[in-house]
Design a protein around this nucleic acid. Structure first.
Lengths: 220, 220
DNA sequence: TCAAAAGTGTTCTCGATACACCCATGC
DNA sequence: GCATGGGTGTATCGAGAACACTTTTGA
């Protein structure tokens, strides 16, 4: 078996963040290519898939301690023209904040794109992002990963807005607040956020809280 | 980079079937190992992940046209002592029936194991099966993959029993029947299954039917 | 005529949804 | 005092859950 026949294992990471009332994703452009792509890299010997994902995330954003989860593995033989690459794709949700993008090695540039206005990407990366967004939206509906997209302290309105942006629909304020307070996964920090209008209580995600609703069954 | 450093990509397939009122999984024992393992193999050059899964399934069971879905990719560096292997794991649900097991090459034996009575398996395969079963049960609750475990024609009681076995809990007969008939995914074949007691109507999964319930939202 | 499995409706409870006004602050 | 966003309660509807008897057949 010669080198050309060997299969490379890559890890790609779909990095999502809220910005300007939109869900955005980080894309990079390598010096040797003309299309934007999902950041990724070849897995190191002795490196687990998850740690490769964390490493790539750190290389691109400088952030550690971020929510990262495996999404799917893409391995069509012709997805990369140059050589056979099997990509294990992860997604990461990072808290809304100002990020200084680090230029990774061999990278021409990196930028955040609104997920509803994506250009044509390299390889099968459009397909991967479609898949990732569907999964993230689903997951947001029935687990509490949504908090990963917010800073440590937030107001209920900010939380609701985050949900509305990702799900792409309007939610009822009273119902939203009742439900989330009943779930008992937040606690008031005591602080208030001031600005225009009445100041808002700040909340924090309760340590160790975890909720995952049971799916409504098809055949109960 | 020498050969020892290279990473191999394998595809493993968790093959599930209903048998004797239990959910069972197909395991194999290779000549050179002393523990049972999930069937799998190294992916071929030019072969997609999904077709590798289908190929492995065919090699083990002789069956084609089976429901196959990607589960998760396992890639811890030490999961196989001999060499670095990244396993893309699929699961397959095959209809209850008598299967003649084909002895794959290099295989010492193959056997069906009740999922509640698994031995200690090779590599991290116990962990993989735990994960697979959780996913299959979840999926059964909110999609219609359950039909994949039944033959083409079945009675409502058989269908209910299949669900009860996989979910591990008793379901109410009247609620089950009302819900599944309302869903409009079955049609009566006109045939009846006779046996002890009153004969039962036979049903068939309606072609092209597809249901996936919306998850109950965490924060509506 | 009896055993065995198929088939069939109703009631209650609880969560999901829809909806409109008062409150605290800064300017 | 007014503009701005924060905060609160109630009524309706529908889905989920619990529950027991009649029907059809073969032995």
């Amino acid at each position: 078996m010669n080198d050309h026949d060997r299969i490379a294992v890559a890890v790609d990471v779909v990095i999502c963040m809220l910005q300007n009332e939109a869900l955005t994703v980080l894309l990079i452009k390598r010096s040797d290519q003309d299309r934007w792509a999902i950041p990724g890299g070849i897995i190191g010997v002795g490196e687990s898939l998850q740690s490769a994902a964390v490493r790539i995330l750190e290389e691109e954003t400088g952030m550690a301690d971020v929510y990262v989860e495996q999404l799917y593995t893409f391995g069509e033989p012709d997805r990369d023209q140059r050589k056979r690459v099997v990509s294990v794709v992860y997604y990461a949700l990072i808290p809304a904040q100002q990020i200084e993008l680090k230029a990774g090695s061999g990278t021409d540039g990196a930028a955040w794109f609104n997920v509803d206005e994506l250009p044509r990407l390299a390889f099968d990366h459009n397909e991967i992002l479609d898949y990732a967004l569907t999964r993230i939206r689903n997951k947001l509906e029935y687990t509490d990963v949504g908090f990963q997209l917010l800073p440590e302290e937030f107001t209920l309105t900010e939380l609701q807005t985050a949900y509305e942006i990702v799900l792409g629909e309007h939610l009822d304020k009273r119902n939203f607040r009742r439900k989330i307070l009943q779930a008992n996964i937040l606690h008031e920090t005591g602080g208030m956020r001031t600005g225009e209008g009445r100041p808002a209580k700040l909340y924090r995600y309760r340590d160790g809280a975890f909720v995952e609703v049971k799916a409504r069954r098809l055949f109960p």
